[in-house]
């Protein structure tokens, strides 16, 4: 009933402790029963990548990488994945808040629905998007009739496909962060006169920022690698809808070496971006 516990005073000294000089008991040896599976896990994830490095056509690498077609696909991928992440943030964070902080009928059902794009094959997602947003789709036919707007075969369709498959990662991550956040801070804000919107924007959001960041990274990475829904819903046209994964797939049909080069470029760029972001967050928090 009451929040306090008798030993709270001892447990939470408020005296500031200089960071980095905290003396911790020395950790014991790392147990092999954890190390062995962990190393196996890393190898499992990294070895296919090593295979690509070995097979890559290094002598012609420079020329292949700077091919305007490659750069166009790379630019399209990076820009659409970023836009998709922004859209996912705008829609996904409020959705996560609703799921974590409110009670409404069918909330569990909605939460299950959010994970649907994770479960179904992306190609099915692409077909579903066509059926709804295509030129003859449930909604798409009115977009076409009223606004002359057709989505398939446009970069917007690429973004939509990416949002569809990637947003669940963001929603799940942010909802988890919201559930883990100490709600008493929100109560404190309310006692200071903050309405729910203010509490959300000024207190809750800053508190769950790391969770949002992690979710956005997952979302961006998933959007960057998106293939099935994109090729089905947005089609494949160089410079317009052909993202890197599509370019990789097409190259694979004719020139596997070119596919390896494209894959390595995609991998390298995403690693650089993710490492930079991570660095920034780790330093910030």
């Amino acid at each position: 009933m009451t929040a306090q516990t008798p030993d709270r005073s001892r447990r939470r000294p408020r005296t500031p402790v200089p960071r980095g000089r905290v003396r911790r008991p020395r950790a014991g040896r790392v147990p092999w029963i954890l190390v062995v599976p962990a190393v196996a896990g890393v190898l499992f994830l990294v070895l296919p990548f090593a295979g690509m490095l070995v097979r890559a056509p290094w002598p012609t690498m420079g020329a292949r990488v700077t091919d305007p077609a490659v750069l166009a696909a790379l630019w399209l991928s990076l820009s659409t994945a970023t836009v998709a992440t922004v859209v996912s943030l705008l829609l996904g964070v409020p959705l996560a808040w609703l799921l974590a902080r409110t009670e409404f009928p069918g909330r569990r059902f909605v939460r299950a629905l959010v994970t649907v794009p994770l479960v179904i094959p992306p190609v099915v997602g692409g077909v579903a998007l066509l059926l709804v947003l295509g030129r003859n789709g449930l909604v798409g036919q009115y977009l076409d009739a009223w606004f002359g707007l057709t989505l398939p075969f446009t970069p917007a369709a690429v973004v939509i496909a990416q949002v569809f498959v990637a947003m669940p990662f963001l929603v799940i991550s942010v909802e988890g962060a919201l559930r883990g956040a100490d709600r008493r801070y929100e109560e404190a804000a309310a006692t200071l006169g903050a309405d729910r919107v203010t509490v959300f924007t000024r207190v809750t959001l800053p508190m769950v920022l790391p969770g949002i960041g992690a979710g956005a990274v997952l979302c961006w990475a998933r959007a960057l690698g998106e293939f099935g829904a994109t090729i089905t819903f947005a089609g494949n046209f160089p410079g317009t809808t052909q993202t890197m994964p599509l370019a990789v797939y097409m190259a694979m049909q004719r020139d596997p070496e070119a596919a390896i080069v494209l894959s390595l470029v995609l991998l390298l760029v995403s690693l650089v971006v993710l490492a930079t972001l991570r660095e920034r967050w780790v330093n910030a928090s």
Partner: peptide, 18 residues
């Protein structure tokens, strides 16, 4: 408007009227 990854995909786009 699109270079599809295989002939089935072309067919699907036509069937759906896209």
């Amino acid at each position: 408007v699109t270079y599809e990854e295989d002939v089935r995909a072309v067919l699907t786009k036509v069937e759906l009227g896209e």
